[in-house]
Design a protein around this nucleic acid. Structure first.
Length: 854
DNA sequence: GAGTTTGAAACT
DNA sequence: CAGTTTCAAACTC
C-alpha cells in the first residue's frame, strides 16, 4: 500500500476510532445511540429514502412483537473464540425466552450476526432499548431475545449459531422458526431468510465479517435461500474497515447478491484499523432498499436499527466530508503552488442522460474519497455524439499512487453510463478503479487528470506499463463544454503503436484513433494528440509527423522528455516530436500535447535547449550550454541549414526571419520534416556516433568534406565536434588527425585558453569571496542594530592602551611589593576594567551611530 | 557590424 | 553520383 493510502487509512482510522468509541460509550452508558432529536436532524440523503420509508412503515405497523420481548430476556453469551470458532460445524442455538424454537429457516425477521474469531473487534449493535452489557458466552447454539457479545447487543428473538469461524445470531420472528436453525446453522440457513435484510457486518480480527442481517419476513417460511428472485435489488453498504476491499460478508450473503445487485450497490467504505486488533477490521452495514418485499415484522426490526444506522451513516458521512475537505485543501494548496506555472483547466461535465448513477447532483462522482486525500484524479469523459453504446472501461490504476477519481461524465448517449466506482473501490484496494467512458467504444486510451500534481498534467494508462504522466495543453480559452472541435477533419487515424524507450523503461504507447482521443481529451482537439514523456530532460529530436515507417524506429532513440505533438492542420500528418521546453507554445496552441509534468515544470521557464546525447556522452554538458540562436533569413528555418531545425528544436529567441519553425507553422514544419526524412532518413539522427571497433568512440557519421580549412576550423564538423577526422572523411589537406602538429598546437592553444579562462574565473571568484570575507571580518554587522560588534573596537590602539594599563598595574604591584597572587589579581581586575571600557565605548559608538542614522 | 570564407545542405 | 547552388555559420577586418 502506498504512503498516501496508509495516510488515508490513518486519517480514516482516527475518525472511525472516535466513532466506535462513541458508540461504545453510548452503549455502556445505557443511552440511546441516537437521540430522537439527533435522529431527526440527520439529513435524509444520508440514508436511502426508500429504506427509511420502509422502516418507518414497519415501525408504524408495529406488528412485530419481538421488540417487546427483547427487553424481557437477556441471554448472556460469551464468545469462546478458541473453541467455537474452530468448530466449523457447531451450530449453537440458544433458547429464546419466549419463542421456543427459533429457526433460521423461517421467513420471519432474523438477525444474523457473524462474529469473527476474536471479540476484539466486536461491533456494538443496539437494536432496541436493551442496555444489558453482560458479556456473552457462546454455547453451541443460543437463542434469545437479547444478545450481548462483548460490546455487541442484540435484542429480540434470535438464534445464535457458530459455524465456520462465525457466530450467527439468527433473530427469530415467529415461533415457526425453529429446528431448522438448530439442525443447520450454517450460512446457508441464514441465507434462507428472504426479503429485505439489514446487514451490519464487521470483520473481526480474523477477517470474518460480523453480519447483522435483518431479513424481510415476506419471504415464505421454509423457502430456500438460493432463490435470487426475492433478493433485494439494492443495497446500501457502509463498510468500515482496515482493508479497503469489500470482502464477502458471509458466504451466504455473498451468494445472495447477484450481479445486478452488485451493480446497484452503493458502498461507502472507510478504512479502519482497530486499536485492539492487529488485523484490519471492517464494518459493513448493509441496508436493503427494496420496498417490494418488506414485511411488517422485519420492518419493525429494521426500524430499530434506524437510529443506529442513521447515526452511523451520519458520522460516516461526516467523515467523508472531512476527508473531502482535507482533499480539497490539499488540492487547493497544490494548485496554488502550481497555478503560477500552469493554468488551471476547467472541466465541465454533464450528467449522462438516463444514467443510473448515483443521484449526486454535482455531476461529479467521488469514488472512494476516503482512500487518498492527497490526490484526486478527475476523469473527464467528453463523449461525442456518436451513437455508440457507452462502454464501461476499467482503469487499472496504479494503486501506489493512491489517487482517486472524480469521474465526470459527459454523455449524450441515451444509453446509461455506469460508473463502477464505489463497487470496484470496495472490492479492490485500488483507489482508482474504473471510469465510465460514455460513448467511447473500442478505445484503450484512458486519461486521468491528477489534480494534485498539475492541473494540466494527465496520466495515460498504458497497458502493461505504469502511469505515465502526460499533460493536456489546452487552448487558452477553456471551453465550458467538452466538445471536440477543430478545423481538422482527419479524425480517423490508424492506430499505431509507438515504442518509447528511455533507459530501462520501455513504454508502448498505442496511438488511438483521433476520435477516441477526442473523447478523452477535454479540450478541443484538432487532431489526434499523443504525448509521451518519460523523463525530465528535454528533447531535441524532431520526429516526422507523417506515418513514415522509418520514423517509428526513431522513437526508440527518443531522448527523455520527448513530447509528441499533433499536426495542427491534419492532412496526412500524425505526430511530431516537439521540444518539451516549448510548453508555453503548446499551451497557447489549440493542440493537445502530452508531456511529462515534471518536464514541463522544469522546462517551462527555461529557454536553454538540450541536445541529444552524443554517442552516449552525457548531455549535461550540452544541456547546460544554451543553444545559439539561429540567424536564418531565407530557409524559413525549415531546412537543415538551420541548426534549430536540424536539432529538432523550435526556434526560440532566435534572430531568424520569416521563421516557420514553430507551432504556428506546424504544417509547413511537418512537411519540411517529411521532406528531409525522405531525402535522408537519418537526417535528424546525431551526426556524431560511435565509431568502429578499435577506432575512436566518437566520429562523424558521414565525415567532413573540408577543402580549405584543413579541418582545423569550426567549418569542419569534425573539428567542431572536437573529434578527429576519420577514414570516411573526404577532406582535403586534413590536419585534424592525431599526430598533426597543427592540430596539437591548436589544441594546446585552445586548452591553454580554456585553462586561462578557468583560472581567471576561479581567481575572480576567490578574490570576490576573499573581499567579501574581509569585509565581513572588518566590519561585522550587528544583525539587530546594524552597528559594529564590540570586538571590532579592539583596535591596535586599544590593545596597546590596554597592555599599557596592565603593565602599569603590574609595575604598581611590583613597586608596592605585593605578593604575586595579589599582583595577578590586580592585573586581572585592570584587564576587566579595560574590557568594560571597550564594551562601553562600543555601546556608545553604537548609540551615536544610530542617532546619526536617524 | 559588415564582409568574407567555408562547407553542409539542397538542388539539378 | 557528381556538379552546382543555396545557405548560414564561422571567420576576418
Amino acid at each position: 500500500m502506498s504512503k498516501s493510502s496508509r495516510r488515508v487509512d490513518t486519517f480514516a482510522s482516527h475518525y472511525i476510532f472516535l466513532l466506535i468509541f462513541f458508540f461504545h460509550s453510548g452503549q455502556l452508558a445505557g443511552m440511546d445511540v441516537v437521540s430522537p432529536e439527533l435522529n431527526s436532524l440527520l439529513p435524509d440523503e444520508i440514508m436511502d429514502t426508500e429504506a427509511i420509508e420502509d422502516i418507518s412503515d414497519s415501525q408504524a405497523h408495529g406488528t412485530n412483537t419481538q421488540s417487546k420481548t427483547t427487553n424481557e430476556t437477556t441471554v448472556p453469551m460469551e464468545t469462546d473464540t478458541s473453541s467455537n470458532v474452530s468448530s466449523a460445524e457447531n451450530t449453537l442455538v440458544a433458547p429464546t425466552s419466549k419463542d421456543s424454537s427459533p429457526s433460521s429457516s423461517s421467513a420471519g425477521n432474523q438477525i444474523t450476526i457473524s462474529v469473527s474469531s476474536t471479540t476484539s473487534s466486536l461491533p456494538i449493535l443496539k437494536q432496541s432499548l436493551a442496555t444489558s452489557t453482560t458479556s456473552t458466552k457462546t454455547t453451541n447454539s443460543v437463542s434469545g431475545t437479547t444478545v450481548s457479545t462483548g460490546g455487541l447487543k442484540l435484542s429480540g428473538p434470535f438464534t445464535i449459531s457458530a459455524a465456520n469461524h462465525q457466530i450467527i445470531l439468527n433473530k427469530v420472528a415467529t415461533a415457526q422458526a425453529s429446528e431448522a436453525s438448530k439442525s443447520s446453522a450454517t450460512c446457508h440457513q441464514v441465507i434462507k431468510q428472504e426479503g429485505q435484510k439489514l446487514l451490519v457486518t464487521a470483520i473481526g480480527k480474523s477477517g470474518s465479517p460480523i453480519v447483522l442481517q435483518l431479513p424481510n419476513s415476506k419471504a415464505p417460511v421454509g423457502q430456500t435461500s438460493a432463490d435470487p428472485k426475492i433478493q433485494t435489488p439494492q443495497f446500501k453498504v457502509v463498510t468500515i474497515g482496515g482493508r479497503p476491499e469489500l470482502k464477502p460478508l458471509v458466504g451466504c450473503t455473498t451468494n445472495q447478491m447477484t450481479a445486478l445487485q452488485t451493480q446497484q450497490l452503493k458502498a461507502v467504505q472507510i478504512a479502519k484499523k482497530t486499536p485492539t486488533s492487529s488485523a484490519p477490521i471492517k464494518f459493513i452495514i448493509t441496508k436493503t432498499v427494496n420496498s417490494k418485499g418488506a414485511s411488517p415484522q422485519s420492518q419493525v426490526v429494521a426500524g430499530k436499527f434506524v437510529p443506529y444506522l442513521r447515526y452511523l451513516l451520519f458520522y460516516i458521512l461526516c467523515i467523508i466530508h472531512l476527508i473531502f475537505i482535507y482533499i480539497y485543501i490539499y488540492i487547493g494548496r497544490v494548485l496554488t503552488q502550481t497555478s503560477s506555472v500552469l493554468p488551471t483547466k476547467t472541466i465541465t461535465l454533464t450528467e449522462p442522460i438516463g444514467t443510473s448513477l448515483q443521484s449526486i447532483p454535482g455531476k461529479k462522482i467521488a469514488i472512494s474519497p476516503l482512500k487518498t486525500p492527497s490526490k484526486v484524479t478527475v476523469v473527464s469523459v467528453a463523449s461525442p455524439t456518436s451513437s455508440a453504446p457507452p462502454k464501461t472501461v476499467t482503469l487499472p490504476v496504479n494503486l501506489a499512487l493512491g489517487q482517486q477519481i472524480l469521474a465526470v461524465q459527459q454523455s449524450t448517449s441515451a444509453s446509461p453510463v455506469k460508473v463502477v466506482s464505489s463497487q470496484a473501490t470496495a472490492q479492490n484496494i485500488k483507489p482508482v478503479q474504473s471510469v465510465a467512458v460514455g460513448g467511447v467504444s473500442g478505445s484503450h486510451f484512458k486519461t486521468i487528470i491528477p489534480l494534485a500534481t498539475q492541473p494540466n498534467v494527465q496520466q495515460i494508462q498504458v497497458p502493461g506499463s505504469r502511469f505515465h504522466y502526460v499533460r493536456l495543453v489546452t487552448a487558452t480559452t477553456a471551453s465550458s463544454t467538452v466538445q471536440p472541435s477543430g478545423p481538422s477533419t482527419n479524425s480517423v487515424q490508424t492506430a499505431k503503436p509507438m515504442m518509447v524507450s528511455t533507459g530501462a523503461v520501455r513504454m508502448s504507447v498505442p496511438i488511438v484513433p483521433a476520435q477516441s482521443v477526442k473523447q478523452v481529451a477535454p479540450k478541443p482537439l484538432t487532431t489526434a494528440v499523443q504525448g509521451v514523456s518519460t523523463s525530465q530532460t528535454q528533447q531535441r529530436l524532431i520526429m516526422p509527423a507523417t506515418p513514415l515507417p522509418q520514423i517509428q524506429p526513431n522513437f526508440t532513440n527518443l531522448p527523455p522528455g520527448t513530447v509528441l505533438a499533433p499536426a495542427p492542420g491534419g492532412g496526412n500528418v500524425g505526430y511530431a516530436v516537439v521540444p518539451a521546453q516549448y510548453v508555453t507554445q503548446l499551451q497557447q496552441s489549440p493542440f493537445v500535447t502530452l508531456a511529462n509534468n515534471s518536464s514541463f515544470s522544469a522546462s517551462s521557464g527555461v529557454q536553454t535547449q538540450a541536445r541529444l546525447p552524443v554517442n552516449g556522452v552525457s548531455t549535461t554538458e550540452s544541456t547546460s550550454r544554451p543553444r545559439k540562436p539561429c540567424n536564418c533569413t531565407k530557409s524559413q528555418c525549415l531546412k537543415l541549414y538551420c541548426d534549430c531545425f536540424a536539432n529538432g528544436e523550435f526556434c526560440n529567441n532566435c534572430n531568424c526571419n520569416n521563421c516557420f519553425n514553430n507551432l504556428e507553422h506546424e504544417t509547413e514544419r511537418l512537411k519540411a520534416i517529411k521532406t528531409c526524412l525522405d531525402r535522408n532518413p537519418e537526417a535528424f539522427k546525431p551526426k556524431i556516433g560511435k565509431g568502429k571497433e578499435g577506432e575512436s568512440d566518437r566520429r562523424h557519421s558521414k565525415g567532413c568534406n573540408c577543402k580549405r580549412s584543413g579541418c582545423l576550423k569550426n567549418y569542419c564538423e569534425c573539428y567542431e565536434a572536437k573529434i578527429m577526422c576519420s577514414s570516411i572523411c573526404k577532406c582535403i589537406g586534413c590536419k585534424n588527425f592525431e599526430e598533426s602538429p597543427e592540430r596539437k598546437t591548436l589544441m594546446h592553444l585552445a586548452d591553454a585558453a580554456e585553462v586561462r579562462v578557468q583560472q581567471q574565473t576561479a581567481a575572480k571568484t576567490k578574490l570576490s569571496s576573499q573581499i567579501s570575507d574581509l569585509l565581513m571580518r572588518t566590519t561585522p554587522v550587528i544583525p539587530t542594530g546594524g552597528g559594529r560588534l564590540p570586538y571590532t573596537f579592539v583596535t591596535k590602539e586599544v590593545l596597546e592602551a590596554t597592555c599599557e594599563c596592565l603593565l602599569e598595574r603590574a609595575k604598581c604591584s611590583e613597586q608596592t611589593l605585593q605578593p604575586q597572587a595579589e599582583a595577578e589579581r590586580m592585573i586581572l581586575e585592570e584587564f576587566g576594567h579595560c574590557l568594560m571600557s571597550i564594551i562601553n565605548s562600543a555601546g556608545k559608538a553604537k548609540v551615536d551611530c544610530a542617532s546619526i542614522n536617524c
